[in-house]
Design a protein around this nucleic acid. Structure first.
Lengths: 334, 334
DNA sequence: TTGTAAGCGTTATCAT
DNA sequence: ATGATAACGCTTACAA
């Protein structure tokens, strides 16, 4: 910002090359006294190197792109925090792109991030499987990948690229089993958007665990991961007759269920047990039983891979453990 | 990513200069047929210009830096969304920097953003008034500002720069008056971090409104804007004797109060009314009475100013309106 | 150990 | 209307 390398070099009475070597931590030797002069000159000028120019020549932008559904959703915010924390420590910057789960927007952002030579791009949300833009997106991801961009997804996606996820199917199955073990038999499920891989897998897990227990998994309410969807589902339950327990595809809609049930005078967990998936910050506010998904960790792992490309494998699959967290919105069937 | 301007020029059989003019929307004339050839060549090559190179020469990076407390806090997330939405429409990118309200971290980020020639920097949180790093920060802000970076704060800060805020003092006073109008006399306040300007102003507003009503504003609980602080304050209230109403410095701690009171068997709003400030997404979950702060709008306004520097005034002050939102955690004193 | 000069991929100035 | 060419601010062979 303040002055260029040329200014520093001039003031220190050395060539630009030497100044660069002293200031950029190059391995090329620079004598102690010259280095000292350069440092002082830089100090006095308040010199700070242009990351842009540096990135242009080194091809390392120190930028990580994060494509997510909606930053206001804690789920994504927690991932962002994980990415940001490791980025910060390495002097990397994180660019946040709200794509609202729209493949066309994701595509546009992917391009833009490429223009900035983003070293890596993290896709945080599950993608729609059958969207028209999905094919183009897959194509662009491949191209970006070939161009050296490290692409990692934090949910199963239709395109290639590294993957860091939890086992959504298993997570849903485990929490379902937990509900079953409390003696509940009539268990309803509040789904996420059906076209998103993450929700599809969670629904599968629910069904599998129910089948395993010989129970009917037919009571499935449509949803979209939002609080309001949980409320709507709960209202319908009240009208149609209450289940013994409810599992929602994510915490936010589970909280919607809890709140709407309580508003309707239904006691949680006395009358109905409710559980979610995610262990997001808000779930702690309502003391919701859920499955922990280490979102921070998911983001942190992805960021580390991007920042330190040693042994980068574009087909990497990392599975992050999850665990059931029992809190006060569930209890034994009475 | 795929090829450079030189490749496009070669393929179209024109000079680099002409190719640049055709592709960058320059005002310099280019004949229709040549332009056509260039466009096709670019298309075939899947050419996309390097934003880095472009930024280096034009000095316009199309990057906005956002320095915030913690992205997981909806307050900041909503601001981020506002910034991002307008940035997206203009092809700008948003860099998110979690500084945890630490002036030293803010400073480091400010520098880094400057290295990327960020066109503007938005400080979202209220700053500590007496932090040792504050002076250096103010100094750097001034320097950045002189270097052409548009700096805007979304809360009162000790350094110069444009400011887009709500009137925190008035907001707190109004919601306090609302509580008073419901007949409550013993009203407790759960504060934010005392050294942050935003919390200081809200406390002032509370005190002013109480004084105005001839009530004692002495029941102030220490806090830090966090859910847990609200819980702790509520626990203490239960031990020391309940007030008739509670106002918390922000929604998150207000929700902490509500949850802890209910856990202790205290009915909200029947026994105690509770209100917050912010109207963040989570406040809708608990149907909390609060003061709306148009966070999206705050961010959007700041972003617009940065993207469109027409008539930029580094001393600009914009005040965004707020309004009391009455929901179900408050009711008349019985 | 230091310096010279050739890029990196653009835009912008000046000719033509 | 088109083309050379000099920046932009840096890193990095290659020379000395």
């Amino acid at each position: 910002m303040a002055g260029s390398l040329a200014d520093v070099a001039r003031r220190a009475g050395v060539s630009i090359a030497t100044a660069s070597r002293a200031l950029s931590g190059s391995s090329h030797p620079v004598s102690a006294k010259v280095r000292e002069r350069i440092m002082r000159a830089a100090q006095e000028l308040g010199y700070s190197p242009s990351a842009l120019a540096r990135a242009l020549v080194t091809r390392r932008s120190r930028i990580i792109g994060l494509i997510l559904g909606d930053i206001v959703d804690v789920y994504f915010a927690e991932i962002t925090r994980g990415v940001e924390d490791v980025a910060r420590r390495s002097g990397y910057l994180t660019i946040v792109c709200d794509a609202d789960r729209d493949p066309a927007a994701e595509l546009a952002y992917l391009r833009l991030l490429g223009d900035y030579q983003s070293e890596g791009v993290i896709f945080t949300g599950g993608g729609a499987l059958d969207d028209p833009a999905a094919a183009t997106l897959a194509d662009q991801v491949r191209r970006a990948s070939e161009a050296g961009v490290r692409v990692v997804s934090l949910a199963p996606r239709a395109f290639g690229g590294a993957t860091v996820t939890i086992d959504n199917r298993a997570a849903a199955a485990e929490i379902t089993r937990q509900l079953v073990s409390l003696g509940h038999r009539r268990i309803a499920f509040v789904a996420g958007m059906p076209e998103i891989t993450t929700s599809a897998l969670r629904l599968e897990g629910f069904r599998a665990a129910m089948a395993e227990a010989g129970l009917d998994a037919g009571e499935v309410y449509a949803g979209n991961f939002r609080f309001e969807a949980g409320q709507a589902a709960a209202d319908e339950m009240v009208r149609r007759g209450l289940p013994e327990a409810v599992l929602a595809a994510n915490d936010e809609s589970a909280i919607g269920v809890v709140m709407a049930l309580r508003d309707a005078g239904v006691k949680v967990p006395e009358d109905v047990s409710v559980a979610g998936i995610g262990n997001t910050r808000t779930s702690r506010f309502v003391d919701l039983t859920t499955v922990s998904v280490e979102l921070n960790e998911l983001g942190a792992i992805a960021a580390r891979r991007i920042i330190d490309p040693e042994g980068w494998d574009p087909a990497l699959r990392i599975s992050v453990p999850h665990r059931v967290i029992i809190r006060s919105t569930t209890r034994e069937r009475r």
